[in-house]
Amino acid sequence: MLEARNLSVEFASRGRRARAVDGVNLAVGAGEIVALVGESGCGKTTLARTLLGLEKPAGGEVFYDGKPLSYKARELKAYRRRVQLVLQDPTGSLNPRQTVYEAVAEGPRIHKLPDEEKVVADALSRAGLRPPERFFLRYPHELSGGQRQRVVIAGALALNPDVLIADEPVASLDASVRGEILALLLRLRDDLGLSALVVTHDLGLAWNIADRVAVMYLGRIVESGPTEQVLQSPQHPYTKALLSVLPESPEKIVLTGEPPDPTRIPSGCRFHPRCQVVFGDCRTVPLQILPAAETQQAACHLLKLDG
């Protein structure tokens, strides 16, 4: 449904070029929830923004329904109805001077949908704000964090999209509210067949809602596959390290070395400076970019030895 093919995104950073996303293949199928996991600065948010068409790729393409995404104004606008965004901080995502109604009605107005009030009411009740009329004239600051995030989600739902891209959708919410919002995402998938790409640094969240997980490190997917397989039998040393620092894990692998810098990508395997099991090939031989496959796969020289 939504697919990134060999996608790369560059920024100019203090005279140097930073490859925030450096060759990513990733697909989100219909009705599927994919979690994109990685530490801060690994390029997961940039990847999400590029999938939304907010950032233009330096190479590769975004495919939607098998067709490459065009950056012409009209086609991009039509694309916006299909793929919608939910950001981390609901307080920031809502214009403080707009009422709930105005916020949710913005999308339908831009795309000139008929029956605005009904669309808004439906979107609010689907997002779990019932009865919707009670919320129409509220301002964001009068709502709780969870309610605000529901308003943001309703704003996205008002366009009746096929895919939701959620960037850390619950990271700024209380633990109790977190569960409710995740349950909402799952219900939307079941009721409306909504696909979702959930960007997160939280493996527990991925475990709870995702069908598939893609782990990102320094602009590339290093491991991907069905959630259970990836999280229960990780293959890539980076995934292993991430999982080992969860509270229930018996043995912790603490990564050493500097956090990665996208302006200076290491030669060979890009994870080798921080890897626990590094050997000869890792420092010099670059790895193939992983394809957008359904099954479990990892980009690591060790696996090639085994295979």
């Binding site: 939304l52 907010l54 104004a73 991009l76 606008k77 916006r80 109805r81 919608q84 965004l85 950001l87 981390q88 901080d89 920031g92 995502s93 809502l94 214009n95 403080p96 001077r97 913005e106 999308g107 831009i110 795309h111 943001v152 704003g155 366009l159």
Partner: peptide, 26 residues
């Protein structure tokens, strides 16, 4: 840099309109 500006863009609002309707009034 506010998220609501990004959100408005993601909904398909034209850049000039994002400035006129969101950024400038605030």
């Amino acid at each position: 840099g506010q998220d609501y500006v990004t959100t408005a863009r993601a909904k398909g609002l034209k850049d000039d309109d994002v400035r006129r309707k969101h950024a400038v009034p605030n």
